[in-house]
Write a protein that binds this DNA or RNA. Structure first.
Ligand SMILES: [Mn+2]
Ligand SMILES: [Mn+2]
Ligand SMILES: [Zn+2]
Ligand SMILES: [Zn+2]
Lengths: 155, 155
DNA sequence: CCTATTTTTGCAATTGAGTTGCATTTATGG
DNA sequence: CCATAAATGCAACTCAATTGCAAAAATAGG
């Protein structure tokens, strides 16, 4: 019994949507599946197999499409850049996010128990509550960081 | 005894920073002080007194400067646009934000009591927790909305 | 007041993520 | 294999925000 590769998993998930199974879709989704953390458009692009030669616009469109299909999760960061992770990585139900204030990396965290109720002004309707923990990630940490946490670096 | 106008208040706050008291700084801060909700760069620009003739870049720089001085509060929204409100409007200590998923408007909410602790991966350091309530504001609300809540309108 | 020195401001050009229009290619059903 | 709808590639574009640099204030000192 051979293991299911991210590529197989991606292909499988895309088939289930009923839409066309295309190379860009499979490649992009399998990149997301291989990553622990949420990836920017650029990170996805650079992690595609060498020579894949998928157009940047197509990557944008595929990421958007994956999100619509519920196969990916789209997260807004402080740096005005969208990040995506495979929805398979998500826990069902509401969960919190971690955002590194140094490198910008975003991570999905364990589901939170106490969803604190907030009082809204009259006429306002609540749809969802988002909890984001800001802090410094392990790589950027001041003590054991690989490349010292100053200067907005990327990993 | 005449009331303290937002203009006076702005002038006063800026004097206390020790930096130069300039027209753009006073005007921009007093616009923020007059607003209940967080304003985008464009909203600030359009609310400046007619004929103020402050350069857009200067508005960007003043907003950034006010934030550094602790006189304003800078908020990132889903629409990749920064919003600012006068820090005077803020409650001391942590508070939640409301973001309208239709028009994008951002509001500071009352301080939240139960700040739920989240478990972070090893090596990660927590600095702050942000709570954002997503929903529909009174203006965009489906029932009594002035201009029906569809199509990403501005107010 | 004046003037010197230091900030700020204005303007033009630039960045960078993301989007759009349209022609071409590709997946898939028959 | 073919028809056809759907997806992709490419170039141009949008739009918030930033940068470099010269011109214009603000204030400290005389
Ligand atoms: Mn998530
Ligand atoms: Mn706030
Ligand atoms: Zn980091
Ligand atoms: Zn609204």
């Amino acid at each position: 019994m051979s293991k299911t590769t991210p590529l197989d998993a991606a292909e499988q998930s895309i088939r289930l949507t009923g839409a066309k199974l295309t190379r860009p879709r499979v490649l992009v989704l399998s990149v997301l599946l291989k990553s622990e953390r949420a990836l920017t458009h650029h990170e996805v692009e650079s992690r595609l197999p060498a020579g894949s030669d998928v157009n940047r616009v197509t990557i944008y469109r595929v990421l958007e499409w994956l999100t619509e299909q519920g196969l990916a999760h789209k997260i807004a960061g402080e740096d005005r850049v969208w990040r995506f992770n495979a929805a398979a990585h998500q826990h069902t139900g509401p969960h919190a996010h971690f955002e590194c204030s140094d490198c910008g990396q975003v991570l999905c965290l364990e589901p939170v128990q106490a969803k604190p109720a907030v009082r809204l002004p009259a006429g306002f309707r609540q749809q969802a509550v988002e909890l984001t923990v800001k802090g410094v990630c392990a790589d950027c940490g001041p003590v054991h960081g690989k490349s010292r946490g100053h200067g907005r670096h990327q990993h």
